[in-house]
Simulated scan of single mutants.
Amino acid sequence: MVFSPRIKLFPVFSGARRLALALLILFTAASPVYGDQSGNSDQDLPEVRVSTTEGAFNIRLRPDIAPKTVANFLQYVDEGFYDGTLFHRVIPGFMIQAGGFDQNMNRKDTHDPVENESRQTAKNLRGTIAMARTANPDSATAQFFINLVDNPHLDATRARPGYTVFGSVTDGMGAVDAIGNAETTRRNGMGDVPVKPIVVESVRRVESGQ
């Protein structure tokens, strides 16, 4: 998945972060749209609101490019699975990851993995949400990450699958960036864990017209 104790990504950074950073071998009316890659009408696309202890943001989902992934994510949303989970991995200049651990850093049980739906046309741009997974492309379950910058090294190519992008932040990117600037430490054998816990208070569908 994108980032948890056993999932690894290897982005290239300058300075101290030039070395490999673990990604995960386990497992936002007139607001700007980040990472919009379609040109499609937004009217029929589902949207969720993510409320956290650092603020709230909205995500417009893209079942037109990743139908199985969106259905999987909304199943967890409708079950209340994400309520009370943590943003357990934060790497400035890269991404923020959530959806796998409770506030005691215990891993939550999940449903079966979902098929990888990464596409060469679906890019990991700033503000997009994608599924975290292991080295196995079809291993994503509940964990997700939000790209803080454009991350082309996570995109699918003709030679390999990427990390499935299934939506983008349409409102509240400031909250996402605030999470991305959190001070981090090591905890329970994991790196890049926020010193001050950042809790997902709720993830709810946004009804049309709200």
Rank of each mutant, 00 (worst) to 15 (best):
M1I: 12
V12K: 14
V12Q: 15
F13L: 12
S14T: 14
G15R: 13
R18W: 13
L19E: 07
L19C: 08
A20P: 14
L21C: 12
A22E: 15
L23Y: 10
P32L: 07
Y34Q: 06
Y34A: 05
G35M: 00
D36V: 09
S41Q: 08
S41M: 07
P46F: 05
E54R: 01
F57Q: 07
F57D: 10
I65A: 08
A71K: 14
E79F: 03
V90Y: 00
V90L: 09
I96E: 01
F101N: 02
D102A: 05
D109L: 08
T110K: 04
D112V: 11
E115W: 08
E117R: 03
T121Y: 12
L125W: 13
A132W: 00
N136D: 14
F144Y: 12
F144A: 00
F144Q: 01
V149R: 15
V149C: 11
D150C: 12
A156Q: 09
A159D: 14
F166G: 10
G167P: 11
G167H: 05
G167E: 10
S168E: 13
D171V: 04
G172L: 04
G174Y: 05
A175M: 09
A175P: 07
A175L: 07
V176G: 01
A182V: 05
E183Y: 02
T184H: 05
T185W: 08
T185R: 10
R187W: 05
M190P: 01
P194N: 05
V195D: 01
K196Q: 11
P197F: 10
V200K: 01
V200G: 02
S202Y: 08
E207A: 15
